[in-house]
Design a protein around this nucleic acid. Sequence first.
DNA 1: CTGAAAGCGCTAACAC
DNA 2: GTGTTAGCGCTTTCAG
Lengths: 336, 336
Amino acid sequence: MKQIFHRRRTLRDVAKAAGVSLSTASNALNGVGRVNMETRDRVCQIAQEIGFRPNALARSLISKRSLTIGMLTNDTYGRLTLPMGAGVSEVLVDHGVSVFLCATNNDERLARLHLQALLDKQVDGIIFTATRRDVKPPPELLSLPIPVVYAFAEGPPQNVSFVPDDAHGARLAVEHLKQIGRSRILHITGPTDYLAVRIRAEGYRQSCDDPWEVMVGDWSEEWGYEAIEAVFSGNAHPRPDAIFCGNDEIARGVIDALRDRNISVPGDISVVGFDNWEVIARQTRPPLTTIDMELKELGRRAGLAMLHLSRGETVTPGIVRLPCRLVLRQSSQASG
Amino acid sequence: MKQIFHRRRTLRDVAKAAGVSLSTASNALNGVGRVNMETRDRVCQIAQEIGFRPNALARSLISKRSLTIGMLTNDTYGRLTLPMGAGVSEVLVDHGVSVFLCATNNDERLARLHLQALLDKQVDGIIFTATRRDVKPPPELLSLPIPVVYAFAEGPPQNVSFVPDDAHGARLAVEHLKQIGRSRILHITGPTDYLAVRIRAEGYRQSCDDPWEVMVGDWSEEWGYEAIEAVFSGNAHPRPDAIFCGNDEIARGVIDALRDRNISVPGDISVVGFDNWEVIARQTRPPLTTIDMELKELGRRAGLAMLHLSRGETVTPGIVRLPCRLVLRQSSQASG
DNA sequence: CTGAAAGCGCTAACAC
DNA sequence: GTGTTAGCGCTTTCAG
């Protein structure tokens, strides 16, 4: 395939066709300055007809605002980055701001390469997102000539960071379980080197009247399954009547293991997950009650903050913790 | 948060500091024209020191190449779009090309908005990707002043489109099953209004010596589960010794149903899925043999094609079908 | 109200 | 080899 494309229309074309000068055409189209109604309409009319669109590059060169931001993410677009990205561009697109997506794939060189390209292209700001909120952002971000916002990552105190309120999420889960009459609540979760794991566990301990020892493993279904085996095999373990899992995959393993043991969910034991990863949470049997981190909203907030900053406005710095949401399905209460 | 940022260094700053003219500085930094080795080094040295970086906007204004492309996708970044996006930017980043990600969310208005923004920003080209290859691309794409490449979508014949070779994938699955000695192969798949469903089914029929009637439902685990119930409940149905599923979710339902019926996988029945969606395929018990559509490679090819086109080179038009890959796990053969 | 002129930051002819 | 000049497409004083 090879196509020949004809020159784009420029403001000059419009001006000539309308028989006015460049500046008049410009003023007319932008609705600034003093310009006769009639000429204004005529210019706009003609611009429309010949399909004129202003060259954003030329504009940005003057205005020093490119209406462009970069989104730097450390993963190959995991399930976390995506909803956030959607949120970000959702709030920005109406303001004409486009988003460069840069997947650094956890590669230092790639990150630098992308960052350099972004700066060269004069992006108005950068949103850094990660798959783990305790990922250390690249140090280059600390001394940039443009604003930086952190999403699902904790930036330095002088910047704005948006993270899900994991403690709140854990509380939501536990409170819900208590409210439906559960009291022996077990927490099975992922590796403790994840900040989120530690915070969720702490949230669990604080809202539980009688917290049990937290069971720590990896993020897999397998671990959830094994954990249940461990709890129900010997007689050593006391029996829970509810299980709050650190993520949905673990919860799925837990539910499968309970079913294999003919323990009814939610009849005998209520199960709550974390993440609301639909492909898992909707497909457990029964469907999983879980905690949604509202990532899209998080993205929206980050995008909004970026918008303000790029206009030179002030945004309160610090780490903003956004509330989670309890998603009720059948795994916690029979009436669903 | 509010920060004051100081003016960026311009070529003029470099020239002044080096005591040369603008053009000499430019030539030196770009290694073009005739410029004395010593002055060249000195200029570069100084540029480095004061942290000069050329303004890509100004450059693009002259070169008419923005080193920027747009990726238009119809979904909120499904699991298909993402690996492709990674592939695209992987091949482009080394050439200084950045990618605008535009999620249209299947909204006409949003699509137009994004498209307009992209054109205004003088992107060198557009990659259109979809979640279904039979999604009709927006008609606006047909008459654009820049090249358009289709990925996981079928564009008009005069353009290049890259799609996974579903027929090949189906053949891979069936051939594999035959090779391990299976002959009564059942195909359980998704809705027939999906082009991919029809092609995979056709591939199944052609490579099977004795194809059975294809079982059609939706894309869910539930459907896979139900389908097995249907097959094994009455006596009407003949019993398969292998099941090729239209996607991994169905396969998971199938495996769960078989386990619930104490039918051994892969002992009695081999199961093969489609998609290689790891969160599912890795977590079935046993882990799922499946077909990978090599989406990242697909993205790479699309990015490469874009690169050529944006340089004005010729690319053979038409629909390019990229081979799939069989991912062996334990669900098809015991030795795994 | 409108137009001529300068300039954003950079590149590319073309003199010197 | 190096500097001067024009200009990419647009906005923006500032005269008229």
